[in-house]
Nucleic acid binder design. Structure first.
Lengths: 219, 219
DNA sequence: AATAATTGTTAGATTTGTCTAACTTTAAAC
DNA sequence: GTTTAAAGTTAGACAAATCTAACAATTATT
């Protein structure tokens, strides 16, 4: 089908589009750690395959075909992460690197089997939605914890920009998906939040952290 | 570490050496479906990395380093096959293609976890030995069923040249590892064998089949 | 032993994905 | 509204892994 390399470009385009809206050659270059001229020639190649809409000096956009392909790769990535956590006992902070490689495996049976064993999960271990078999993503509308106010109670639904570093930090604070969090107060000058969750503990979360936690309001 | 391509050459060299003793550029070329000049330049490159002993017009030999690297790749392949069969419910005829891809994943944790979940298996689903963590293989000395005689009773220990086609054939005859087989007679003119196993069944196995079944004599 | 067939090697072209250097266009700053 | 900075593009080089064509060495055949 597509090369390992092409798949990485598609995936990066997909993810960047969902984070920032418009995607530039420069963004792609930074995220992939590949120089701009290389990216430029590659997106032209992808445009030739009708995976990307490309016009000089204009933002990059995936075609419908490109979105579907990207969605299917991300599906493999997220199913793998879920499998690694649920069936192999890895921590949510350990699975990205491995899934990054396994997502390129070509074998419908393999991923279908994972899906089946996992009971057709809708989200991955970080709360991100798993695209369906057509590559379509069912976006869950969460809001950032940082956009919530004092007195509100929320449930932690997903984590974004989930680097190993950040996930280890969350582990150390016993912060996990599904956790009910009460916002006690918000410091207006630095945006830090005092919250409580779990065993009566009281914790302070910096804005850097609360911006990366996606929640739904409850009660 | 090494490229995907290099790993495939090492694995092929290792397997060929264990099947035929000496390995030629031509053998490698055929097994990898890569033209001889390409193979020639590649083995020189591997020689440059001290993985292969190379001299013009002489048979190819893996160095100790090469054997170790190859053993570790084969370890990953066979652990994966075992995992797919034991933990994911695949049939022994379905796992080769998938393992062929997963063997190139770089992640000690991933394979260690498989190993642990499987209880540190010594053989794969086809009876081939799984190299240890240093890449060393503990060869099991089986003999071919075709080398056994009438009246002998044997246990099926391994299958060689196990293509999907062949394994499906074995499935259809209910032939599986560990099965006790009694040799009733051997046709001298074509080498075919009349055997019995399982539920009193009587089967005839062609030489083509009995040459690919490795057994140990029992009682 | 001479000849034919097979195997191995060399040389040079091709593709993919990368780079650097130089130039152009668009956007930002003053 | 110039000028400067950032982003984008073009051109050309390069490494990895492949190929074909031509030639050389070894092995097999008669």
């Amino acid at each position: 089908m597509h090369s390992h390399t092409e798949e990485n470009y598609l995936k990066a385009l997909f993810n960047l589009a969902n984070e920032k809206g418009e995607v530039s050659v420069n963004d792609l270059s930074k995220i992939l750690a590949i120089k701009m001229p290389t990216v430029n020639s590659m997106v032209k190649k992808l445009a030739g395959k009708k995976l990307v809409h490309y016009e000089s000096y204009k933002p990059l956009r995936l075609t419908e075909k490109g979105k579907k392909e990207a969605g299917l790769i991300i599906r493999k990535h997220r199913l793998t992460e879920m499998f690694l956590v649920q069936k192999m006992g890895f921590g949510w902070e350990q699975v990205h690197e491995i899934a990054e490689q396994i997502e390129h495996i070509h074998s419908p049976y393999f991923f279908d089997k994972m899906d089946e064993m996992l009971g057709y999960p809708k989200i991955d271990p970080h709360g991100s939605p798993i695209p369906d078999k057509t590559g379509k993503v069912d976006w869950i509308r969460y809001e950032k914890l940082s956009d919530c106010g004092a007195g509100e109670t929320v449930r932690l639904g997903a984590v974004i920009h989930s680097t190993e570093e950040f996930l280890k930090f969350l582990n150390s604070r016993k912060l996990h998906l599904g956790l009910k969090i009460k916002i006690k107060s918000v410091e207006s000058f630095d945006g830090s939040m005092v919250v409580s969750y779990g065993k009566n503990s009281t914790e302070t979360l910096s804005l850097t952290v609360s911006e990366r936690l996606l929640v739904e309001k409850i009660g």
